[in-house]
Design a protein around this nucleic acid. Sequence first.
DNA 1: ATGGTCGGATGCCGA
Length: 267
Amino acid sequence: MSFSITTWNINSVRLRMPIVEQFLVRYKPDILCLQETKCPNGEFPMKPLKALGYEHVIIHGQKGYHGVAIASKIPLTEDHRQDYCGIGDARHISAIVQVGSRRIRLHNFYVPAGGDEPDRSINPKFGHKLDFIEEMKALRADGVPGTSSILVGDLNIAPLENDVWSHKQLLKIVSHTPVETEGMLDIMKKGNWLDLMRLNVPATEKIYTWWSYRAKDWEAADRGRRLDHIWSSQDLGPSLDRIEILREARGWNRPSDHVPVTAHFRF
DNA sequence: ATGGTCGGATGCCGA
C-alpha cells in the first residue's frame, strides 16, 4: 500500500485556505501537517478540510503566532501536545497513525525562528531556539518497540552546506550558524532519526523549501534554504518511494514563503 | 548596498 504525508508552513491558515484546498485537491496526501497556522482553536477552518475527506483534524493553536495542525484521511489517535521550553507556545502536536500493519508515532514541529542576532546574550529569541533544540535531543525515533516514527515540520534550520544558497555567506545568519546546524545533527544522532529528504539526494545537490518574501524576484535570485524537514525512524527508510518538493507553490497566488514537502512511502 | 516583504495581537513586532 502507498502512504503520503506533507509538511507545509502555511503562514496563516485562514488567509491561505484557497491554496491549501488547491493543494489537497491536486496532490491528495493522506496526511497534511501545517505550521504557523496563526489561528485560535475556535476559528480553525475545519469544515473545508473535512469536506475534502480530511475527517481527522487535530489542532494546537493560539492567537496571532505559531500554531500547528494535522489533517488526515485516516484516524489519528493518542494525540498530545508538548510545551517545549514551558512558555505555552503552540509549537508541537503528535498522534499515532496505523498504516497497514505499521503503527507510526507522528510529530509535527514549529521550531522558533530565533530572531536576527545569533548571540543568546543579546538576543533572547536565539537563546529560546537553542533551548528548544536542546530539549528535542530527548526525542527518540525508536523509543517504543513496535512503533515507528515520523517527524516533520518547519525546523527553521538548514543543516548542510547545500541546504542554503551560499554556505559561506550564511554562516553567521540565524538558521545556518554552526551552533544550530550541529545542534540539529545532534538531535538526529541522539534520537536515531533518518533525514528522508537527503536519503536519495547527494549532499552536493542544493535543496530548498523556503524563499524569502523580501527578494524582488524569488525565482530568479533563487536564494533559498531547506528549513522544512521530514525525518523517520531507521526502519521506514527502505519504504520511502520519493520526496516531492512543490517549488511551484511558491509562485501560487498569495503564497506562503515555504512550499509543501511530501514523503511518499510504499509499504 | 546592510535594504527588502509579508502576517497579524497592525501604525508595531515577529518572520
